[in-house]
Amino acid sequence: MMNAIDVHMLIRLIIAVVAAMAWVGINALVLVYCERKFAGHIQRRPGPFEVGPHGILQPLADGLKLMGKQLFRPAGADAFLFWLAPMLSLLPVLLLFLPIPYGPMLTAMNVSLGILLILAFSSLNVLALLLAGWSSNNKWGILGAARAVSQSVAYEIPLLLSVLAVTFMTGSFNLSAISTSQGAWPWQWNLMAQPLAFFIYLVSAFGETNRAPFDLAEAESELTAGFHTEYSSMGFGLFFMAEYAYMVVVCSVCTVLFLGGFRGPVADGWWWFLAKTYALLFLMIWVRWTYPRVRFDQLLNINWKWLLPLAVFNLLATAFVMKL
């Protein structure tokens, strides 16, 4: 019935998804720890210090605490949508890790339209945020959801355009191909050829992942917690994990597109990929703990009045140069 290649693919897919799940979990733990430590040191305090040596087990303890808490649904909330939202937020993330090339041979699925797959499925997150805010029967939640939707929709466009500029240069949507098309040394990376696209991508990435200074959907000093105001326990935990997973995805893609992916001096490999991804993640953390939050209309103005024209200009210029 099923031919051998299909079975082979299926097994490979299952392994990949399981690996991606583990990867998401590990990343969330490590990132939470790093973020809290980093924030602590920026603020000249030690950060978590009590659970395990230097507080290294703190994220685990937090995870356990989250799981132990009561799953609570407010009166008047739509139960189905309310519980669907966090799952919808996390599930597509697992797919996003599949086409990313971690090393020369280390790709779960070498999809020829890899970057499109990532962009397509990452958009599902908006739906999750919208459902979460809407189904909570909470006014702050609705405001948060409305913000999240307009923000994500807006920032996807310059993100896409800056990605397109890179694909124009390499002529491929395949992430492995994009990686290998770049050289080992920093001056051979796409960053040098496309600095503007890199900048636009980075700013849009902050917007897409709802990270400070663009964390308006959950701006706690304005909307208490925005779309996840009413979520407790693992409902909140899933959103939390998804947020960190999206950060990893966005930074991974950025590494592939602009920083040479797994290419690096001396020897190519996953170590270069990880180092670059985490460097970007640290930048995100650093920015979060430095800046105040922008206002909502300013956020959209930055997008529509600055990023979008710049991205279009950059794309046209790239096309023009490529054609020459």
Binding site: H41, I42, Q43, R44, R45, P46, F49, W286, W289, Y291
Partner: peptide, 21 residues
């Protein structure tokens, strides 16, 4: 000014902790 802000926090990051355990 954003770069300056990053510089300030970066500098504090590399300084000694001031809290008491």
């Amino acid at each position: 000014s954003l770069i300056v802000g990053l510089k300030v926090t970066g500098k504090c990051f590399s300084q000694k902790l001031i809290t008491v355990h």
